[in-house]
Amino acid sequence: MEKVKAFAPATVANVSCGFDILGFALDSLGDHVILSKNDEKVLRVISIKGDGGRLPLEADKNTCSIAIRAMLDDLGSDQGFDIELEKGLPLGSGMGSSAASAVAALVAVNELLGNPYPKNELLPFAMEAERAACGTAHADNVAPSLLGGFVLIRGYKPLDVIKLSVPDNLTCTLLHPNYQLNTSDSRSVLKDRIPLKDAITQSGNVAGLVAGLFQSDYALISRSLEDVIAEPYRASLLPGFDEVKKAMLELGALGLGISGSGPTLFILSEGKEKHEHFVQKAKEIYDNLGLSLKAYFSRINTKGGFVIQ
């Protein structure tokens, strides 16, 4: 095999109370990578579509090629590849854009090389791409994009990643308002220290959310989707956040939170029937703020990244 195409899904990281330790994968939304072997022993990013010319073609700066290089170095391989990236995700959206690109590239190269790694062992290479993109080799986007489903990052030394159960009827609405929020700005407002009472509350909510997922207890999931560590500070950076959250909860959402660093918001609900109501109300709120809105509906993707052809 000389050429393959792979897909990796968008993700929601943090999941309210799961700041930096929880994430889940979405259906349909994501990035595609077409990867071809070359005989020149070099990595080349030969084209990028859908990024508006904003992403680097240089192999030492692009998350696709950085992830592939990490894997090839681990294998001791000098095989060359040509990379074509098709972005299906907006940049800086809080939907795991850089993670999806890296994961799709890794799934593709692993296939072309005869699958030398089980899927879960590709994760450290994807994390190296996140280090280049974000400054930190975090896993809460790349792990669900790679493995699918809900994922818990229990620890990093050693890396300990656990797939969680997903209730059959758990669904997600994404609200992506038309403005950009830098991850560095979202990080800058966070506190280095948190009160003991907040740590206890957050721990209880994380445990409750995990239990709710395994028990398919939507009421428990709902009352556990509360973030007392990051959201109170990040909300001030997001126009209309408090109004949107209040409205979505009144319409019957299980919970609403900030996807990754924002500005995208995620809404978890039981089934699809309330999705259109969420979107209609959210558009009214953002229209009043002078902001356009893109909205998406998704079930939880339990497959993760995969080879298409």
Rank of each mutant, 00 (worst) to 15 (best):
G271K: 05
Q202C: 13
F19P: 01
A102P: 05
S93Q: 01
V151T: 09
L43D: 14
K246G: 00
V103T: 07
E250N: 15
L249T: 08
A230Y: 11
S101L: 04
M248P: 00
V15W: 06
S216A: 15
A133V: 03
L146F: 07
E128Y: 06
Y218C: 14
G50V: 07
S16H: 05
Q309A: 15
Y179H: 08
I300F: 04
H32P: 01
L89S: 01
N14F: 01
T302G: 07
V4T: 14
V103S: 10
R54A: 15
T11R: 10
L225S: 03
K163R: 15
T63S: 12
L175F: 05
Y156A: 07
P9C: 01
R187A: 00
T63M: 09
L159S: 00
A99V: 02
S186N: 01
S236N: 14
L265M: 14
E130G: 03
D78N: 12
R234F: 08
G255F: 06
P232H: 09
D287E: 15
G290A: 04
P118W: 03
N62K: 10
L213Y: 07
L159V: 01
S16V: 00
I194K: 13
E2R: 13
M95V: 02
V151K: 07
I300E: 11
G23W: 12
D227H: 12
A8R: 07
Q215V: 00
G305W: 04
G18W: 04
M127A: 13
A247Q: 14
Q79E: 15
V109F: 11
P124N: 11
S145F: 06
N141K: 11
G23C: 13
K49D: 09
D227P: 05
H32L: 13
K37D: 15
E250Y: 12
P232I: 06
D217Q: 02
G23T: 12
L106G: 11
I66M: 11
L209H: 07
V45N: 06
G271F: 02
L29D: 08
E111I: 04
S93K: 00
Y296H: 08
P56K: 13
G257N: 05
N38H: 11
D73T: 07
A126K: 05
T11S: 15
K87V: 10
Y233S: 15
A59R: 11
P167E: 01
M1F: 06
A104L: 09
R154K: 13
R69K: 14
E273P: 06
